[in-house]
Design a protein around this nucleic acid. Structure first.
Lengths: 204, 204
DNA sequence: GTCTATACCAGGATAGAC
DNA sequence: GTCTATCCTGGTATAGAC
């Protein structure tokens, strides 16, 4: 019936010597991603880490702060990478767009859990907890728009509605998040080039 | 901070003479879509309908049954429409694929709420409540695969990995669900043709 | 910084009168 | 079929000992 199964209540995967705070964040990353934020209890997290529920509050003031930290650790590295790819002027716009798409799809496919879905959960957005992710997503959208625009120019297409086409490209990439809900073990080596080719076909 | 704002506690939009059961379903459709299933309380639903919380249990045995009914009412009509579009042999495969995509995107853009997101909520899937939506989604995927396959043949592309390309096309269409989270008022007249053209470019 | 004990409250569901 | 009253569970967070 349900596609997911309760994992045995064992320790988090991080090295037992990593700080308790870090083990909390890693357990929460998994649980929030697989159960949702509202449906994950602080007891679930504590059990997974191997401590008692009130001990969480030695590290985080409220449950929401754990989610904030999950967001920070998840998206901080990728933003920097995007900037670098975006700025490499040695490549054509098409190549840069293609590389960005491939990188993006790989990130969405290969993390341990489908963390990107978190930013789209209603309860996360409603409680204003998706601010970090929303900022990341918006920044990424702007990068895509720039590259799509340059690629269109490169291909001699000046008539096209840039905003709409960027939305389509973005939709194509982020749609992978929803595919991964159906199949948690997407094959990045198969999908990343396929999505890249699709995006390049769309701007051609 | 938060993008969404609490609506005033007023009556459901359906005609006051429609059955209480139906008003419950409509209120729940909105609330589940905008707050998530776990984060919506039975009191929220009752308030919106204008009855007391225990009165819900004259119509539904448990909260989950309300969600099941929401799913049924949402997806029953669309499945039939898909079948019809799929079967119209008077058109080329490309045209049928294009029409299906346009119809699908319009459905995703124009319903009162972003109900399609419901089927991707972790708490809904974990509790086995997404069975109806999953079946609908799988059926739709098979339709897409058939049409993509026929369109590829039509265009003389026999080398392509059909499964992967169908995933890409599906990702492109369903990605609209995530776009709508960012912007609840997508312009269907602008996006539907754009996504259709993108899909046709991908299979060309 | 982790524990036990517990306060506090919210949410799902039931009982029984009308 | 709706109401009031209420039960019961479970979840967040705090107090205070070690």
């Amino acid at each position: 019936m349900s596609e997911t199964v309760d994992a045995p209540a064992e320790r988090s995967e991080s090295h037992p010597r990593s700080s308790a705070r870090q083990r909390i964040v890693e357990a929460a990353t998994e649980l929030f991603s697989t159960r949702g934020y509202a449906a994950t209890t602080t007891r679930d997290i504590a059990d997974r880490v191997g401590i008692k529920q009130p001990s969480l509050y030695s590290h985080f003031a409220v449950k929401a702060d754990i989610l904030i930290e999950v967001e920070l650790q998840t998206f901080r590295p990728t933003v920097e990478r995007f900037e670098a790819l975006h700025a490499d002027k040695a490549l054509t716009a098409g190549d840069r767009l293609g590389q960005l798409v491939e990188f993006d799809v790989r990130m969405l496919c290969t993390g341990s859990w489908n963390v990107a879905l978190l930013g789209y959960l209603p309860e996360v957005r409603r409680e204003g907890l998706a601010a970090g992710m929303a900022a990341h997503s918006h920044e990424l959208f702007l990068v895509y728009r720039t590259l799509v625009g340059e690629a269109l120019t490169e291909n001699g297409r000046t008539e096209t509605d840039l905003g709409t086409l960027t939305e389509v490209v973005f939709s194509l990439v982020e749609g992978i998040i929803l595919r991964r809900v159906h199949d948690p073990h997407l094959d990045a080596d198969r999908l990343a080039p396929a999505v890249r080719d699709a995006v390049l076909a769309v701007v051609r």
